[in-house]
Design a protein around this nucleic acid. Sequence first.
DNA 1: AACAACGCGA
Length: 633
Amino acid sequence: MFKFKHLSFFSHSKHERLRLAFSASSAAVFDEFSTQQQQICNDRHNQMDQMLQPHILLCLDPKLYVSSLLDCRNLIQIKKIHAHATITGMLHNLTVANKLLYMYARFKALEDASTFFDAMQERDLVSWSVMVGGFAKAGLYPNCLGTFREIIRSGILPDNFSLPFAVRACRDTSDLQTGRMIHHLVYKSGLHSDPFVSAALVDMYAKCGVIEDARLLFDRIPKKDLVTWTVMIDAHANCGNAEESLVLFDRMREEGIIPDKVTMVTVVFACAKLGAMHKAELVHDYISRNKFSLDVILGTAMIDMYAKCGSVNAARNIFDHMKEKNVVSWSAMIAAYGYHGQGKKALDMFPMMLRSGISPNRITFVSLLYACSHAGLVDEGLRFFYSMWEDYSVKPDVKHYTCMVDLLGRAGRLDEALELIKNMTVEKDEGLWGAILGACRIHGNIELAGKAAKSLLEFQSRNPGYYVLLSNIYANAGRWEDVAKVRELMTHRRLKKIPGWTWIEVGNKRYQFSTGDKTHPQSDKIYEMLKSLTKKLELAGYVPNTNFVLHDVDEELKIGILNTHSEKLAIAFGLISIPERMPIRLIKNLRVCGDCHTFSKLVSAIVQREIIVRDANRFHHFKEGVCSCGDYW
DNA sequence: AACAACGCGA
């Protein structure tokens, strides 16, 4: 209740400020207040003890039981009152009995709750709903839905208390079928306009992967409350349409709904997904102006946002200003340095984290190993890998093995990577072989690629990425028959290659480019710019590397395809539309192709402009002819 | 009722 130990970096929310003003912000006052509360609680319990004296038994007050139950701070206190109530016969009062049930559920003592529930002589809808909610909050979904079904079976229509919890159980178990059935019941109960119920339904549809249904329902809700908006904003960001999230955020405010901290976290998350620096700054500004407190969740979300928008320094600035940091915040910062190629800084964070009393978890080690992998810090990575279990009791799982395979593989130590896979005891997955395949691509090891592909294809992967990668390896070696085989397999499994895109933010707008794109209104100017760039580059010795065009077509056509890769078009557009000296920031859905990488390096030198590219798994900062990845990616 | 970090791949 009293969370003042971490007064926030930004000013407080209105609610917090009121509380602060009210209680004069001194620790002593809080302590005193808290002692008073404890005293009241004790007094009540003493009063109850006295009631057990035979002569007072007659003046029992259910209200006293209810408030005493609500005062309980642990299970022992609840059980004590339960015992009292049994003796005094107060459990026959349904209000008291339901409150007892509720308290058991609140303290996650679902077994006690169930036992008591089964023993209850009389139950009403509230009793049933408390059980449904209790099971859902404790993550006991089968019990939750089972209890809910019993309500339905007994012919009672559920209320607006049990329905959201039953829907939540469907959401967390991805049980869309049951979810739809419950939606039907909602109409029958006439509760479709209840904000709790409709928010839960929208959330359920979104998290079950049917965002269209979520949106359909959302659009039909006449008066949407804050939570419903937040759910929808989050849903769009999670399904890859973060742009729509920001549109919804604006619309929500236009309709007079005031966002709260949770909404801001989802909006920040959407900016992180988009990688849109301009939007990120606007959102940051909004957060500061509206005095949202920079707590550990919002702060961590902002670290992630700035890092994924290309500024690891801005991320670090947020990190440094956070009063409270947990393992998530530290891992986010370590990961950020990792994917910006600053492996050393990522590793430096680790002892700092330990000193501040935070223990690493499995994600911290994924981030550390990842940082090593992308900076070529092989020995350091090996050391972390071996010490994570021994020194920190974090068991390496398949993700850690994948990082290690990637680390060793990139460094050309493929034999060691294979040895690691051979000796591992945790279950292997397709990603592990994908990492081997990636290393084969870098080092042109076709034999091993074949073997890895065999293991990989056993997983019947639905992920087109692996097939295309394999086909690319064969194409690079000129083995067109093998290429054809892989492509055939893809067609057979009905998988399509994901097309590459590059996005660029200019002012308030985000522009999207594909290979050979001519849909941009300034297309002519873009191609003109590209042509003059290529000319300048050729003078500087640039030769298009057609190894990166993976079709069996003639050389001239290859150069044509290469020259209009989406990344090059976006750079050309950036140069004509972004003010001088401002960096050009790009976001790609795939990895940078080798030729575009060379191209970007040269452009950064020739036109003296910083180019920052976020590709599918890391950042490249091109400046004065060199890339932050050191060509190691 | 809603919120934060992680590998590989096109």
